[in-house]
Design a binder for these strands. Structure first.
Length: 234
DNA sequence: AAATGACTCAACCGCGTACCT
DNA sequence: AAGGTACGCGGTTGAGTCATT
């Protein structure tokens, strides 16, 4: 029997999204929401499969996304959550508002994993690596790590891994506000009026991310269930 | 300045599962 | 209950960028 492809392979564009495509997708979702991802590309006039549209929206175009590096606190949270949940990136991302599972996954694979290894911690089990492996791994990674990765480490008495970074870095604290992609800025500017009407986002300070419900969305509740789902762990 | 290697991250693929008929 | 469909998730890839030689 086998599984049918998610979309007709013929005539479906793949690869990086153009500004024009982004624009189409944004404006379609702003006006209509996403009733059914499979129908979105057709209705929005895009030669993409629904899956690709969903991914593009959730991972890049969503207006509530934060960009840039994680703060040390967030990074610590990711480590703690990973220790408890394993590679369940969507669950981990749900605890970090504005972050996507894809982003967390990438950050884990490119930064955090290396840091843990460097610190002598098995990134899979979150237990200390044995000495032999530890010395080998530290030798092998010492030559390749970047200076920006340099950080202090300390381990609490309970054995929990603690990361501490030089928080004086100007890019770090402001990664949320200033990390916006110029292209995205441009795209969003084009839709400013719509955005103002449709998305009155509370600022990060205003949102109680500890609550399950998450920010209140101006569109109808039915169409934003996906977001509420994101907000709830488990 | 050019070549090479390392790194990053957006995007794709395929599987699992929930939902519908 | 069984089969089909759509969505979401996690793993993987590869093009672009950055750093080093």
């Amino acid at each position: 029997m086998g599984r049918r492809p998610c979309c007709d392979k013929l005539g479906v564009k793949k690869g990086p999204w153009s500004a024009e495509e982004d624009k189409k997708l944004i404006s379609f979702i702003l006006t209509n929401g996403h009733c059914c991802w499979r129908a979105v590309p057709k209705l929005a006039g895009l030669l993409r499969c629904g899956k690709s549209c969903r991914l593009r929206w959730t991972n890049y175009l969503r207006p509530d996304l934060k960009r840039g590096l994680l703060s040390p606190a967030d990074e610590q949270l990711v480590i703690d959550l990973h220790a408890r949940l394993g590679n369940r990136w969507s669950k981990i991302a749900a605890m970090l508002p504005g972050r996507t599972d894809n982003e967390i996954k990438n950050l884990w694979n490119t930064h955090i994993k290396k840091k843990l290894v460097k610190m002598g911690v098995d990134p899979v089990t979150h237990k200390p690596l044995d000495r032999k492996a530890n010395s080998v791994s530290s030798q092998s990674t010492a030559t390749t790590e970047s200076k920006s990765d340099q950080q202090l480490q300390s381990r609490g008495t309970d054995g929990q891994i603690q990361l501490s970074e030089n928080t004086s870095s100007p890019t770090e604290a402001s990664s949320n506000a200033d990390g916006a992609d110029p292209l995205l800025s441009c795209l969003w500017e084009d839709n400013t009026s719509l955005l103002d009407e449709l998305w009155q986002f509370p600022s990060n300070e205003d949102v109680d991310y500890g609550s399950v419900a998450g920010p209140v969305w101006p569109w109808d509740e039915g169409s934003c269930e996906w977001l509420l789902d994101d907000q709830a762990l488990g």
